[in-house]
Simulated scan of single mutants.
Amino acid sequence: MATKIIGLKRLNAKLKKLPKAAEMAVKEAMEQGANEIVAMMKSLVAVDSGDLRDSIGWTWGEAPKYSQRIASIKARDGKLALTIFAGNNKVRYAHLVEFSTRAHVNGGKFAGSMHPGTKAQPFFFVSWRALRRRTKSRITRAITKSAKQVAAGGGGGG
């Protein structure tokens, strides 16, 4: 004897909406986290000409050509991948500012002269570490919230 489950059709319809609703919520949470991280990086970076500061950003997918990937946030299913980066074809020294340079004999334009080196002026990993947990929690809350909205009949998906 077959057992009829009351409301199964409605439940299945809600479950179909969940992935889209969750994806939209996660995407929004990832963008908000990336914006916060980038803003902190820009506020902490040492500014001379402003070129390095202006090269800091984020994008969906891979980092732009010539930039240095600082962090990636990826959804478990791999569909959503966000990359935070610094640098471009004009600015290729973000890592030197972040980590420092050693004193060395110059082999470039003023060959033979001594370069005193530079001290580290961290801006990207400190920002990433400071906001990583908050961003991850925001994404988890977004998934939970979208699941609750779908379960309540609010949808959230299209």
Results as ranks from 00 to 15, higher is better:
Met1Asn: 11
Thr3Ile: 13
Ile5Arg: 05
Ile6Gln: 09
Gly7Ala: 09
Lys9Met: 05
Arg10Pro: 11
Ala13Trp: 01
Lys14Ile: 04
Leu15Ser: 07
Leu18Trp: 03
Leu18Ala: 14
Lys20Val: 15
Ala21Leu: 05
Ala21Asn: 05
Met24Arg: 14
Met24Trp: 09
Ala25Asn: 10
Val26Ile: 15
Glu28Tyr: 13
Glu28Cys: 02
Ala29Pro: 06
Met30Thr: 05
Gly33Trp: 14
Gly33Thr: 12
Gly33Ile: 11
Glu36Phe: 06
Val38Ser: 02
Ala39Gly: 09
Met40Val: 10
Met40Gly: 00
Leu44Tyr: 08
Val45Pro: 02
Val47Ala: 06
Asp48Asn: 14
Asp48Gln: 07
Asp48Trp: 04
Ser49Pro: 01
Ser49Cys: 01
Asp51Trp: 14
Leu52Ser: 07
Arg53Ser: 10
Arg53Pro: 00
Asp54Gly: 01
Ile56Ala: 04
Ile56Val: 13
Ala63Asp: 03
Pro64Leu: 07
Pro64Gln: 04
Lys65Ala: 10
Lys65Leu: 10
Ser67Leu: 04
Ser67Arg: 00
Gln68Val: 11
Arg69Met: 13
Ile73His: 08
Ile73Arg: 04
Ile73Ser: 09
Lys74Glu: 15
Asp77Val: 13
Asp77Thr: 11
Gly78Ser: 04
Lys79Met: 10
Lys79Gln: 13
Ala81Asp: 07
Ala81Gly: 07
Leu82Ser: 01
Phe85Gly: 01
Phe85Met: 02
Asn88Ile: 10
Asn89Gln: 10
Lys90Asn: 03
Lys90Cys: 01
Arg92Leu: 00
Tyr93Asn: 00
Ala94Cys: 03
Ala94Lys: 08
His95Pro: 06
Val97Asp: 04
Val97Glu: 08
Phe99Ile: 05
Ala103Ser: 12
His104Ser: 04
His104Phe: 01
Val105Arg: 12
Gly108Glu: 09
Lys109Arg: 13
Lys109Thr: 14
Lys109Gln: 11
Lys109Cys: 00
Ala111Leu: 05
His115Ala: 10
Thr118Asp: 12
Thr118Tyr: 04
Lys119Arg: 09
Lys119Val: 07
Phe124Ser: 08
Phe125Met: 15
Phe125Cys: 05
Val126Ala: 05
Arg129Lys: 11
Arg129Leu: 06
Leu131Tyr: 03
Arg132Pro: 07
Arg133Ala: 15
Arg138Ser: 06
Thr140Asp: 15
Thr140His: 08
Arg141Val: 13
Arg141Lys: 14
Ile143Tyr: 13
Ile143Leu: 15
Thr144His: 10
Ser146Val: 00
Ser146Thr: 05
Ala147Leu: 15
Lys148Ile: 14
Val150Ala: 15
Val150Pro: 01
Ala151Leu: 14
Gly154Thr: 01
Gly156Thr: 05
Gly158Cys: 03
Gly158His: 09
